[in-house]
Design a protein around this nucleic acid. Structure first.
Length: 152
DNA sequence: GCCAACGTTGGC
DNA sequence: GCCAACGTTGGC
């Protein structure tokens, strides 16, 4: 089983929104690398739900893949900001996965804390200039974040 | 609001 | 195919 991390701006869609929605298609990913990661995701795999552009930014909880990749419908909808005229229904460019909530962390793990963890030193999450919104984590990286989030 | 980093675009 | 310009992301 692979492990992942999703970034979202909590002002737009935070962990509590996912809890309220119960499941949600992860729309709007328009980066090929992030899309390719989503295509690899399998039902039941877990991911860290990370709050970006927040004060502070950090890990809010755990979510899981409840439906594998399929075309992101917003790419065909001119009413959304994710509309992509280059994408054709017979050959969709962009994918989404559907995620559901698993566990909200008792302790929000701030980016400062994540940076201080030796187990995360090699992760893309804390790399300079990291702009990828969907990325893989190793099992130790994932477990380290979860352990911190469960800590009182 | 600023700035660094990086992906994408478009001219050649 | 190269690369400069531009736009977006994300932390601060």
């Amino acid at each position: 089983m692979a492990h992942w991390l999703f970034k979202s701006e909590p002002d737009v869609f935070g962990y509590d929104h996912l809890v309220a929605a119960k499941r949600e298609g992860w729309d709007g990913v328009r980066n090929y690398q992030a899309r390719n990661f989503m295509r690899l995701m399998q039902v039941g795999e877990q991911a860290i739900f990370y709050h970006s552009m927040a004060k502070p930014a950090g890990a809010a909880g755990i979510c899981e893949i409840v439906k594998a990749a399929e075309p992101d419908p917003t790419q065909f909808d001119p009413a959304t900001k994710y509309f992509d005229p280059k994408s054709k229904p017979e050959d969709p460019l962009w994918a989404w996965v559907t995620v559901g909530p698993v566990e909200k962390f008792r302790h929000f793990v701030s980016l400062d804390e994540l940076r201080a963890m030796p187990a995360l030193a090699e992760s893309r999450l804390v790399a300079r200039g990291n702009r990828l919104s969907v990325l893989p984590l190793t099992e130790p990286e994932f477990d380290t974040i979860v352990a911190a989030g469960r800590h009182p």
